[in-house]
Amino acid sequence: MPMTQQNVVRTRDVKKVFILGKIPLEALKGINLEIKRGEYISIMGPSGSGKSTLFNMIGGLDKPSEGKVYIDEVDVAQLDAYELAWLRCRKIGYIFQTFNLIPVMTALENVTLPMVFAGMSSDDSRSKGVELLELVGLGDRVQHKPLELSGGQQQRVAVARALANDPAIVLADEPTGNLDLKTGKEIISLLRRLNKEKEVTIISATHDLKMLDVSDRIFWIRDGRVERVEERSEIKLEVGTMEGEEA
C-alpha cells in the first residue's frame, strides 16, 4: 500500500454496548472512519454522544463490542497484552481532560515515565524529557510537582508526556475541558504547532468550538453515530462568513 495514503487509524462498524444493570446502552452504533497520517482531526459532539468511548476504542484502552479498530493497519483485537502495551507506549500518546499526571512525580519524571516503560536509559530519557518540556514552554518548571503547577501548565506537561516516545498518534479527550478560554487556546495552538512540526497525527475529542479553526477534518458525532464529516475548506468558509457577519 502506498505510504502517503496509509490510514493511521481506521475503524469498521465499531459498536460499543454498556450493560447498566440489566439495560444495555449502545454508546457507539457503528462508527466508520479513516484518518490519515499527519491529519489534525476533531471529534465533535455534545456531552454523552460517545466521544470518550470512541477515544478509548481508538486508543486501545477498551475493546469494542463489535467491529474492528486498525492502528497502522493492524487489528488491535489481535494484539496480546505485551503488544498492546507496546502500542500504547510507542504508537499513541494520550492527553486527558483531567491531565492525569502522577501526583508524586515531578514534571520531568512524568514526562520520562513512558520512556522508562520503553526501556530507555535514564540519561537519555532525562535529556529528552527536558527537551520536550522546553518545547512546550516549561523549561523552567522541570522539577515542579503537578500540584505546584497551574492547570494550563499541567496540561503542557501532559502534552510533553504524550510526545515522549515519538508516537504516530496523539489522542486527546477534551484537552481544553478543564481550562479557561485563554489557556485552552494556548493548548490548541500548541497541539497544532506540534502537528505541523512533528507531523504527528492529532485526534481530539472535544466540544470546544475553538478547535474548529485548526482542524483538518471534523467528525460530528451524535448519539453514537458519525453525523457528518467536514473538510477544512468548508470550515474556513464558515468561519470566514461568521467573521464577515460580525464585522
Binding site: 474492528k68 486498525y70 497502522d72 493497519e73 493492524v74 487489528d75 489481535q78 494484539l79 496480546d80 505485551y82 503488544e83 498492546l84 502495551a85 507496546w86 502500542l87 507506549c89 510507542r90 504508537k91 508524586v104 512525580m105 522508562v116 516503560f117 520503553a118 526501556g119
Partner: peptide, 29 residues
C-alpha cells in the same frame, strides 16, 4: 492484511529496580 503485525513489537518487562524506585518514591512522599 489484517494480520500484518510487522510494525508492532512486544513491550519489554522492566527490571525490578525500576518498580522498586517508583514504589519507594511513592511511599516516601
Amino acid at each position: 492484511m489484517d494480520d500484518e503485525k510487522e510494525n508492532i513489537q512486544r513491550q519489554i518487562v522492566l527490571p525490578l529496580r525500576k518498580a522498586l524506585e517508583i514504589s519507594f518514591k511513592s511511599l516516601r512522599i
